[in-house]
Amino acid sequence: MNKLFISPSPHMYEDTTVKRLMFDVVIAMLPALAFSIYFFGMGAIIVTLTAVVSCLAFEWLIQKYMLKQEPSITDGSALVTGILLAFNVPTNLPIWIVIIGSLVAIGIGKMSFGGLGNNPFNPALVGRVFMLISFPVQMTSWPVPTGFNNSYTDAVTGATPLGVMKEGIGAGETVSSIMDKIPSHMELFYGHMGGSMGEIAAIALLLGFGYMLFRKVIKMHIPVSILLTITAFTGILWLINPESNADPVFHLLTGGVMLGAIFMATDYVTSPMSVKGMWIYGIGIGIITVLIRVFGAYPEGVSFAILIMNAFVPLINAYIKPKRFGEEVKNG
């Protein structure tokens, strides 16, 4: 007889692993990646490869030489961070800035807190916001979506629809006249606009969302609560004065709303544990995003909104508990 294993129950396990979850997220990001390459050409490939390779390399180097741990880059989490970081920058961003962004994302955003599972803030967003504040010019020059006609370094650039809107409203133009200058809602839906690489095509991001729901990688609560809140908030503003506020569909389809709601805010580590908490977190992100977009200085606020709500997650987890079985007795 072989030596018998002795252990307490349970004696069987679901075959889900951290690695499988991470690779499912990667698969879910592929449609968005394909759309970015289609619209932005070479730049999208260069930026993505740079971000992925440097995120993996920094994680490996830090684990091996600074923390003296067994490197765990095969778990796929640095790969996810790398792709998300690339998704959050314009495709003509110089390689050296991408590398610095990756170092901040992995080094400060993730490893300084103890690696996967311990970081309070979404690492890719830490990297993005660091780059946005440090290199505001490069981070806000958006190549126009002309596919492979675009060269990487000296791409023709233009403003994002959100930027045009913000500037127009600031200059006292009416929303309807601004709308003539930007792509139609249909074009926005499939991503024919300037913007960060991965955020443009709502349809591709929604495909990824569907895949992740199907594979039970994430629950729907966070994305749905963010999107509903933004729709409701911008809808109210729009109904009050449609000439100085853009319609809710415009808000949903532009900027980082879809990318943020589906891929950034749902990061396991930095989002709440209970369903009730997820709703609070999502509603908070939605409100802060609209506040920044409509009343703030930046045309876009999703990254800041997510980072701000990330900071509240420990508090949410401490006070918002799932309802226990038998806690309040309702019979009948």
Binding site: T16, V18, S72, L116, G117, N118, Y268, V269, P272, S274
Partner: peptide, 10 residues
């Protein structure tokens, strides 16, 4: 491996 706070247990 480490807890990734995926909330599946919850």
């Amino acid at each position: 491996s480490g807890c990734i706070r995926c909330a599946k247990c919850v």
